[in-house]
């Protein structure tokens, strides 16, 4: 497997969340992830991108969300970043059921954590948030080494 990288830069609009999911589903399929793993990748990306728009940019359009994919021999790395309001206390924000919006469930980070092998959140108030997630390829289990 050659190294590969893709970057998707898009406006902070709700309809772009589906496009981000389509991209990760295509890349996941090309990497031969099982269907189940592709579903998980879609949820993780959907949560990270939705957070950037809903929380980072407070639902306002006219801002930019960046999704970067890096593929190497053994892993797919997804980085979603915004230049929005930032998170004052990342540890607290990542607690299950914690949300600053009473209408929401506070499960976004829970889903990202359960569906990815690694999750890292880097945030600075008034500067923005970068969420990076890794899913291992585990190709040795299914295909012979090439």
């Amino acid at each position: 497997m050659k190294e590969n990288q893709l970057t998707l830069s898009f406006s902070s609009l709700a309809e772009n969340v589906g496009i981000a999911r389509m991209l990760i589903a295509s890349v996941g399929a090309q990497l031969d992830f099982p269907i189940n793993d592709i579903e998980e990748l879609k949820v993780a990306v959907s949560e990270a991108v939705s957070n950037a728009i809903i929380h980072g940019y407070r639902g306002r359009s006219g801002h930019v969300v960046l999704m970067e994919l890096e593929i190497d021999d053994d892993a797919l790395k997804i980085t979603v970043s915004d230049e929005g309001c930032g998170i004052p206390d990342v540890e607290q924000a990542m607690q299950p059921a914690y949300s600053t919006d009473p209408e929401r469930m506070g499960l976004g980070f829970v889903f990202m954590q359960s569906f990815m092998d690694e999750l890292n959140v880097d945030s600075t108030v008034n500067k923005g948030t970068t969420v990076s997630m890794v899913k291992q390829l585990n190709r040795s289990a299914s295909s012979p080494s090439s």
Binding site: S46, M105, G108
Partner: peptide, 9 residues
């Protein structure tokens, strides 16, 4: 076809 925490919420 798909649901995430916004849909569940």
């Amino acid at each position: 076809q798909f649901i995430d925490s916004s849909g569940l919420g």
